[in-house]
Design a protein around this nucleic acid. Sequence first.
RNA 1: GGAGAGGUGGCCGAGCGGCUGAAGGCAGCUGCCUGCUAAGCAGUUGUGGGGGCAACUCCACCCCGGGUUCGAAUCCCGGCCUCUCCGCCA
Length: 427
Amino acid sequence: MLDLKFIRENPEEVKKTLKNRGMEADIDKLLKLDRERRNLLQKAEDLKHKKNIASAQIGKLVGQGEDPKDKIAEMKLVAQKIKEIDKEVGEIDEKLAKIALLVPNIPHNSVPVGSGPEDNVEVRRWGEPSKFDFEPLPHEELADALGMIDFRAASKISGRGFALYRGLGARLERALINFMLDLHTSKHGYTEVFPPFMVKRECMIGAGQLPKLEDDMYRCEADDLFLIPTAEVPITNIHREEILRAKNLPVYYCSYTACFRREAGSYGKETKGLVRVHQFNKIELVKFVKPETSYEELESLLRDAEEVLQLLGLHYRVLNLCTADISFAASKCYDLEVWVPAEGRYLEISSCSNFVDFQARRAGIRYRPEKGGQAEYVHTLNGSAMAVGRTVVALLETYQQKDGSIAIPEVLRPYMGGLQRIEAQRG
RNA sequence: GGAGAGGUGGCCGAGCGGCUGAAGGCAGCUGCCUGCUAAGCAGUUGUGGGGGCAACUCCACCCCGGGUUCGAAUCCCGGCCUCUCCGCCA
């Protein structure tokens, strides 16, 4: 959420942002409501002032044993009037919030202006696409042939868009999770967190997922709880409505969770394999930092994420997303795209974003500066490091051998019981 | 699921219809003092919003939402959360 005062004072910039992002929100109506609201507020406050003074007088008179009947009768009317105005203000507040929650974050000036994914700017590439002297197979075929993933069983159990890992497939998934968590906790200084996978509505609003994306969420209606679409939601909300100590900043968390997405509206896209499923595993990095450091922190967050792919020896590129492509709550966002040989293209595998004070304002996460004084909103950042399922996709396709087996990268072997290669299994 | 207790400022904790934006303590800040550190003394410190160039001033906020009242942190109703005991359970 943007500061209402900021919108009031910079309506043109906000409108420009909307245009650059290809989004809509009725800023003029917002401003009109804001004016009405302040008008009414003024009236209500004058009356309240009157009431407060009169009440104090009445108290005094009663204390002196008098009976100020007239005054009480008069105040009764004033109280009635106040109630009416307050009700009106409440109605305007609701309308105002509805619009304000739909206004996206202002992009940083280093974000390229664009109208679609084609305008994203490639920042760098690491490694090279692997070369094959045979036709590389897609991951779902490899995984099936090796008995690693059973899509048929998954759909029997849960319908389309789910995966059931078995044997070394399940082991590989677990190995990747442990490898990533170990890297971030022991080398990059993140504190591991294992949060609930179901969260309350206000957490979804705080992290900026709602009200915009409700259709894409799984919701448990009886309790109004949501299955998390990413660990970002529970982790960001750890410090909701808190004032952090400056000396404790920055705070780094990393977390493994399953993620649940309905993927409403994307039927027909990427229906095969692990690329787009309703439940997947992800390691997420989340930072709470002082405002003046957040863009540096974004760069180091990005490096922490990149290191996962580098250690796994997977070719990737880094994109600086353009205004049309960065998420609603982000001011700047880098995507990591990993090379998937069978398809001969780059696949989004991580997204690293700076939200500046946007989430913090929604969620009420502040800190007290060293010198004391006013509490200020922290800046929040997060990034995937990595989406595990898509890492499996890239890994299988990149390390496939002519005989259909998969070579296991060095760093994963300790997590695979020393195994160097995945070959066809029985059962 | 049943029976109780409770949610007050950065933290702890008093208050239980008007003199309370809220005692006291801790923490923070500012002076003084002190070889340094620690301690001590004095002062000061909540958040959000409105108006004014300003000093300033007004309004709201004691978990959230309603209600009673001229007046609510204090009384009533609903919700959320926490704790204790019983039951159930991986």
